[in-house]
Design a protein around this nucleic acid. Structure first.
Lengths: 344, 344
DNA sequence: CAGTAAAATGCAATCGATTGCATAGCTAAG
DNA sequence: CTTAGCTATGCAATCGATTGCATTTTACTG
């Protein structure tokens, strides 16, 4: 309960009979200060239990050494891997990280952006929500020159560094894998096309079909918000088509899981009757029966990269001349759900 | 690129020919200010694009309106549910939330605590790591009267509000459920006993056995860190015992999953030969085959409660006279992994 | 209308670190 | 022994909002 009064640089200055500016400089290893006094000051600071008042420093320097992160859901393995990557780099560089989740809700995303802005984060790393189609809330940042880095779900219209996985390629190899397994009627359950990543996944899918000279059946392509419920609806809809698919490429693992469970409920065998491929390598896809073939995304590395880019911008204080879009490689993980087709 | 100069309360004051203090008070709805001037001031602030400089306010008030949260892993459904609950309440009350994960690493936990302390969070909500046995890093907070709220993995020796689930009861009903299914040799895979929650779960387990007058077999009780790998080892060890268990109570779902998979690999039927019950209701336990019976913990509500308690303390600025330990109810979710025993 | 209480506003110090500029002390060249 | 030229240190303003106390204005009573 005893509130010890905090030691300030002025206390140290007084104790050593020098000026506060010298103390401040010494503690920050400013080369102007001689080795001797620096040592003296650091020792005194130590002894007096000095702790810098970050609030004062932040105020004075107009910086918070904090990076804001907005993700749709921290509860997704991919996103939490990215967050870990961000933290990894940020902590090493002395930055704190504030994480918030938008729950794919545009209102909440806006509010969070507001809050982070008001709290003066030095930079913002984000992956936009499924329903985000306007970007007013991000103008706050660009207007004030606060660096922005997008990852995964990026925005084309805003100039910023972007870190994405090669969704096109991922979808392509996933679909090609199904084709290689002898599948001919490959359906797709994709995400909303306002998000670039889902556009790219769709294009990868279409390209693979084209390259294999397989016909494209518009009725076998469904777009929704990729939840468990929507996934179930989509699968049921596909099953009502006149020609049944013999494989489904799902734009995320949640939907793939939905498909596996829904088909199981209908006694349709996976992969014998219908093969399934997902996207993202969520942990559950490994343990469900049948385990789900999927595309692995290097989340941790993406987070690291994002943190590096944003910190670089924060430190330079200048908008970079050119903005990069970094494409990270994907990897196909083959599991049970995409085995060879069998005739009944 | 244009860096508009920020409007300050002094600018507003000058524009309206009044004093900055009045402006400050008006903007904070201080009742000392008359309705008329308050309106005038707010209007001017709006028009001039005034945005409060939180850094200055924080500095002056020595508060950050930020709550720190440390969890072992954000990637666990339970923890991310808690976080969502915390955010829910905190945002409504105008607090920001800074989330960090310790990865169950004591060093990292310490460092994070340091960082949060240095960054002057107004309060700290945390669930300690598996290997945390000393609490020096938390003294920082108690010494300075910074409120602390523990949840789930709490520390007995520190006085603070604590939010836990009724682990004893949860384990009791889980074990009793197995007994009700006709199981007689119920093994347990528990967590490290330096954590109260695992003590309690063990006690619930033991009590249930006792109440049913079942013998307790020390060799059928294993403690480890509850990871996938450790779980596998533990199960294999149990299988080497002279008398095989006919059920395993696992202190978390990860271990239960491990058990299901390991047993499957050995062609031991779940639940026919060995029944499994987990703890926490992780999403995967619903989708794995067989789906896992488990204990549901009200994570979101726990988070809400934790946020309420911490904010209350932050606002009151006084250590409460008594500290509560709030026990949240658990719920048994019966799934396939704990069905009736069958003879071969 | 004086007088006093209450309401509204202003003054000015303050929080603690940072930093541009000034200056003291010292070295070494002339 | 000067003095230019460093190096090391100090001065003092500054960042913008908050707040205890003083002061002015308003409202009301007798």
């Amino acid at each position: 309960m005893s509130q010890k009064p905090e030691t300030t640089i002025h206390d140290i200055a007084k104790a050593l009979n020098i000026s506060a500016s010298t103390v401040s400089r010494a503690l920050k290893d400013n080369p102007l200060i001689s080795e001797a006094t620096r040592y003296k000051i650091k020792k005194a600071a130590q002894e007096m239990g000095y702790r810098p008042n970050i609030l004062a420093a932040n105020f004075r320097t107009r910086r918070t050494n904090t990076i804001g992160v907005i993700v749709p859901l921290i509860n997704r393995h991919f996103f939490s891997a990215v967050i870990s990557g961000i933290e990894d780099v940020a902590y090493q560089q002395g930055f704190a990280v504030t994480i918030s989740q938008s729950n794919d809700d545009f209102e909440k995303e806006s509010k969070i952006a507001q809050t982070l802005f008001t709290n003066r984060v030095d930079g913002l790393i984000l992956s936009i929500g499924m329903n985000t189609t306007t970007y007013e809330h991000l103008k706050l940042f660009s207007e004030r020159n606060i660096p922005l880095v997008f990852f995964d779900r990026v925005v084309d219209d805003i100039e910023a560094h972007k870190i994405v996985v090669d969704d096109f390629e991922g979808a392509y190899i996933a679909t090609k894998h199904l084709i290689d397994q002898g599948r001919k009627r490959i359906a797709m359950i994709g995400g909303p096309l306002n998000l670039k990543i889902y556009q790219n996944r769709q294009e990868g899918y279409l390209k693979a079909l084209n390259d294999a000279r397989l016909p494209i059946d518009e009725s076998a392509i469904i777009h929704n918000s990729l939840t468990r419920e929507e996934g179930e609806k989509a699968v049921k809809k596909l099953l009502r088509n006149k020609t049944l698919p013999d494989a489904i490429f799902c734009a995320n693992d949640t939907t793939a899981l939905s498909a596996v469970i829904t088909l199981r409920g209908k006694n349709i065998r996976v992969p014998e009757d219908i093969a399934i491929v997902g996207f993202s390598n969520e942990p559950f896809s490994e343990v469900v029966t049948p385990s789900i073939t999927t595309i692995k995304q290097p989340g941790f590395e993406m987070g690291q990269k994002a943190a590096e880019l944003i910190i670089q911008q924060v430190l330079v204080k200048e908008a970079p001349l050119t903005f990069e879009t970094i494409k990270m490689p994907t990897e196909l993980i083959v599991r049970e759900s995409s085995g060879i087709k069998k005739q009944k």
